[in-house]
Design a protein around this nucleic acid. Structure first.
Length: 208
DNA sequence: AACGCTATCAACCGCTCTCGC
DNA sequence: AGCGAGAGCGGTTGATAGCGT
């Protein structure tokens, strides 16, 4: 009952620039994560959830806005094949992009079900960004040459190799059309890779 | 110019997860 | 072990800008 009252008193809808400023100051004072405190102390009459969302998607430093590049688009497609609708994980591999942005981009530009609706615009988007080779293969990624089983030299993108390595780790990788189950075997391995990357970028210091 | 339709994206909702007690 | 609070995530909604007729 009381919760409901509080909820109805909370302000909703679009954020004003002055609210953004207050929220930014509050996060600097109280720290990222204490959303209940921030909601209360800011006096914005916004829920903690709302504050968190606004910060995460728009106010956080290093947020990248604007059109997705062809590289980012391709990466989203491939990671979605690999991870399913795990937007935060996918966004985690796209510096400066948020899960909400990735999700919106997928739903509007890449999702087959929805893109039927947006076919006209989608075609325009493809035309405007027509950087594909005649075979439809994206060529921006750096490539590596590997020797296949039948001793042929195969040229692949670095990303292709990375995904194949992931699949080698996990022989039971489901097909892209099959929804993933909670106990997907490769997720912990993926987390390890992310952790390893963080180490190599010196984001985490090992304790020796 | 006016209207209707569509695409986009910011924000909300409800559920799950995690952590402290 | 069970419970509650808070945080995080993914799905969905709704406002609005832009386009076509």
């Amino acid at each position: 009952m009381k919760d409901k009252e509080v909820k109805t008193r909370m302000k909703r809808g679009f954020w004003k620039p002055e609210e953004d400023l207050i929220l930014k100051n509050c996060v600097e004072t109280h720290g990222e994560g204490n959303w209940a405190t921030i909601s209360e102390k800011s006096g914005l009459m916004r829920s903690g959830k709302s504050c968190r969302l606004r910060w995460k998607n728009y106010l956080r430093p290093n947020i990248k806005r604007g059109m997705m590049s062809e590289d980012e688009k391709d990466l989203i497609i491939r990671l979605h094949k690999l991870l399913g609708n795990r937007w935060s994980l996918i966004a985690g591999r796209l510096p400066g992009r948020t899960d909400n942005e990735v999700k919106n981009f997928w739903n509007t530009h890449l999702n087959n079900k929805r893109s039927c609706r947006s076919k006209k615009k989608h075609v325009k988007f493809e035309e405007a960004n027509n950087t594909h080779s005649p075979q439809g293969k994206i060529q921006e990624y750096p490539t590596v040459e590997t020797v296949s089983n039948n001793k042929e030299v195969v040229t692949k993108t670095v990303l292709d190799s990375w995904i194949e390595e992931m699949q080698d780790f996990n022989c039971s990788l489901p097909s892209p059309n099959v929804p993933f189950l909670e106990d997907e075997p490769f997720i912990p391995i993926l987390d390890d890779i992310l952790l390893l990357e963080a180490f190599t970028r010196n984001e985490i210091q090992p304790f020796l």
